[in-house]
Design a protein around this nucleic acid. Structure first.
Lengths: 342, 342
DNA sequence: AGACCTAAGTTAAACGTTTAACCAAAATCA
DNA sequence: TGATTTTGGTTAAACGTTTAACTTAGGTCT
C-alpha cells in the first residue's frame, strides 16, 4: 500500500493539515516543521494522490489537446511538435495533456472528444484549422480555450499565432535583395486566415521595395494545401508562360510539390528557379537541394500555449490574449543570388 | 454546478447507492428502477466524476505511454504513429493515454514520469529501447506493462514486436532473386535485440540461398542508429574496397545516410548500388530515388499493444503474451534487377 | 404456521486530500 | 498587568463516488 498523507503526518508528528499546508507552500508553517515534514515525505516515498486532490479541488488536472485527423495523420511533424511542446510544459505544472483528434470535416452530428463529454479536462488547446461548427459546439461547454496556429478573427479567443506576414515578408525581402524581381507566390486554401496573412506579407514586401505586383505571378488554388496542390500550382504557373526567377510557396509541402514539378520539366533549382517554403519541417533537409524556409518554433508554440492556459486557469483571467511567435528565415541551397544589389 | 450522484438520486427518488449500482449494471436493480434512474441522469445531464470514482476504486482510467527523448525528438514519425495507434484504440475503451518521455540514457537518479510517481496510470506501454536501469526502477511499481518494439528476452513481459528476422529475410531474398550475390549489411547499436534479429534474418536468407557469407560485407558500428551512422557505415564499407551490388541497412535512417555517402562518392543508385532500409518512414518517398524498405504497420502495433493492455487489465491475466506483427517488403526505385535468375 | 431464503434496496463507511474555522501559546500593546 | 494580536498549528467537514453490511418485505418449504 502506498503511503498517504496520514502516514506522513504520523511520522512527522503533526496533523495532516500541516502536511498539506507544508506541501502546498502555505505561509503558516515554520521552516522547522516544513523540514520535518519533508523528511517524512522522503523517508516514506510519499506522493499526493491525484484523484483525491482533484476531487476536493474540483479540477481534473487534465488539459485536452485537439487536432484534426488530417493534421495528425499527415505525419508532417508540424503539429506533433507543437503537441510535444505542450507536453514539455505540462510537466512543470500539475497537469496532464490528453490528446484527441476530430474529423477534419467536423459535422453537426459528429461526437466531441470523449474527454469533453466526460468532463475530464479543465481547458482545451485547439491546434490548426477546425471547422466553425466544431468550434460552436465545443464552446457551449464554456471551457477555457487556447487556439494554436489558427483563429477566427471575429470570435475572440486566446491564441498563439505565427507571424505569417512577417515571415513571408522576410522571405520576399531576401529574394529581392538577391536580385530577384519576378517572384511568384503559390498558395491554396486561400480562405485560410494564415494563408491570407502570408499573401499579404508578400504584397507588402513588394510594395516596400517598389517592385510592381503582377496578378500573373500569383497562383491561388482553392484545393487543400498539400504536396499535390504545390505540384498543381507550379504547373499552372508554368502554363501561364510568365517570367519568374523565384517562387515563394505558402508552406513547405507545397514548395516540395512545386520543386517536383519543376524538376520534372527539367528546370534547375536553384540555378533557374529559387524557392522558399514555410514551416521548416524535417524533410526540407532531405530535398535536393535542401529547401529554404521560414522556420516556425513549434515546440515553443506549444509551450506558449500551455503557459497561456495556465495563466487563464490559475489567475482566473481570460483576456483573450494573442501571442504572435516570431519566425526565422532559413536560407538553404534552394535559393541563389542572381546579382547583388549595390 | 454540475449535478452529482445525489441530485440524480433525489430526482429518481432512490438512494445514491442505487444510482451507482444502476449505472454500473449491477444485477440487484430492477428494470423499472434502472429506467427511472436513467431518465433522471439524462434530465440532469449527469456524468460521473472521474476523480471521485478513481479515488474509491483505486483506478485511474489512464494508461501511460513512455518513450525516450531520443525516439520522440527524432521526429521520425515512427513512434508517433505507434502512439497514435494506442490513442485510436483507447477511444473505444474507458481509458485515456498519457504520454511521457524519459531521458534516452536514463540513470539511477533520474526521475520517473510524473504519472508514475503520482500513481495516475493503471498500466504502462513502453515503446522502443529503454535502459535496463529504467526498466528495473519502474518495475518496482508493479504496474501491468506492455513493451512495444523492444524487450529484454531474459525479462518476461507482454510485448508487441516486429518480425525483424522475417523482414530482413524477405529483403535479402528479394535482392538475391534479382541477381545480387554480394549484399552488404550495415548496422549500428549492434547489441540492440532488434538489430541482432535483423542481422540474423540476413544470415539465414543467405544460407537458405546457399550464398557464401562474408565478414567483409558486414559493417556493424557501436554508435547510435542514425543518418550519420549510416553515412559512416557506408564509408567504412567503401574503404574496405570489397565488391558489392546491394546494401541492406538496418533501418531507413541508416539507409538514407548511406545513400548520401554513395551519392557523394559519385555512385549511382540503383544503377551501381541497390539499397533497402527498414521501417517505412515518410521521408523514404522523398528520397532520390525513393527508398525501398520493410514496412512496419505502426498504427496497428499501437492498437495491438493497447488491446493487450486491456486484456491484462480487465481479464486480470498476465500471460506475458508476445505479439509478432508481420512486415511487408516495399520495393521502390532504389532496387534494380541485375539479372533474372532462371 | 413458522423457519428460512431471496430479491431489491438502503445505510454508512471509506477513499486521500484541502481548507475554513478554531485554538493555545507567545508576543505586543496601552 | 491585563487585554489584544500574532503565530503556528489542529480539528473536522467536505469533495463524489463505491460497496460491504444491513434491512425489509415477500416468497418458499416442510
Amino acid at each position: 500500500m502506498r503511503p498517504t498523507i496520514k502516514d506522513v503526518a504520523r511520522l512527522a508528528n503533526v496533523s495532516t493539515a500541516t502536511v498539506s499546508l507544508s506541501i502546498n507552500g502555505h505561509a503558516r508553517i515554520t521552516k522547522e516543521t516544513k523540514i520535518k515534514v519533508e523528511k517524512a515525505i522522503k523517508d516514506l516515498g510519499y506522493f499526493p494522490s491525484r484523484s483525491a486532490r482533484d476531487l476536493v479541488s474540483r479540477k481534473t488536472g487534465n488539459i485536452g489537446f485537439i487536432l484534426t485527423d488530417g493534421h495528425f495523420l499527415k505525419t508532417e511533424p508540424f503539429y506533433t511538435q507543437i503537441f510535444l511542446g505542450t507536453e514539455f510544459e505540462a510537466r512543470k505544472h500539475p497537469y496532464y495533456i490528453l490528446l484527441a483528434t476530430i474529423p477534419t470535416n467536423f459535422k453537426e452530428e459528429d461526437e466531441l472528444p470523449r474527454f469533453i463529454l466526460e468532463n475530464s479536462v479543465d481547458g482545451i488547446l485547439i491546434a490548426g484549422r477546425v471547422s466553425k461548427i466544431f468550434l460552436k459546439k465545443i464552446m457551449t461547454y464554456g471551457l477555457p480555450t487556447v487556439m494554436i496556429d489558427f483563429h477566427y478573427s471575429e470570435k475572440n479567443h486566446s491564441a498563439v499565432l505565427i507571424d505569417n506576414m512577417g515571415g513571408v515578408s522576410k522571405a520576399t525581402n531576401a529574394l529581392i535583395s538577391r536580385g530577384h524581381n519576378n517572384i511568384a507566390f503559390l498558395c491554396a486554401e486561400h480562405e485560410h486566415p494564415s494563408i491570407q496573412e502570408r499573401y499579404h506579407g508578400y504584397k507588402i514586401a513588394l510594395e516596400k521595395n517598389s517592385i510592381p505586383f503582377s496578378e500573373q505571378l500569383i497562383v491561388s488554388l482553392d484545393t487543400i494545401i498539400s504536396t499535390e496542390s504545390g505540384y498543381d500550382a507550379a504547373k499552372e504557373l508554368n502554363k501561364r508562360g510568365v517570367d519568374f526567377s523565384a517562387v515563394i510557396a505558402c508552406n513547405d509541402a507545397m514548395a516540395i510539390g512545386a520543386m517536383q514539378f519543376f524538376k520534372e520539366t527539367g528546370k534547375q533549382i536553384p540555378e533557374e528557379i529559387s524557392i522558399i517554403g514555410f514551416d521548416d519541417i524535417e524533410i526540407d533537409l532531405y530535398q535536393d537541394p535542401p529547401l529554404s524556409t521560414i522556420s516556425v518554433p513549434k515546440i515553443d508554440m506549444g509551450q506558449d500555449a500551455f503557459q497561456l492556459m495556465i495563466e487563464i486557469l490559475e489567475k482566473r483571467i481570460n483576456n483573450h490574449k494573442k501571442i504572435i511567435v516570431p519566425v526565422e528565415l532559413i536560407l538553404r541551397d534552394s535559393v541563389k543570388t542572381i546579382s547583388k544589389l549595390s
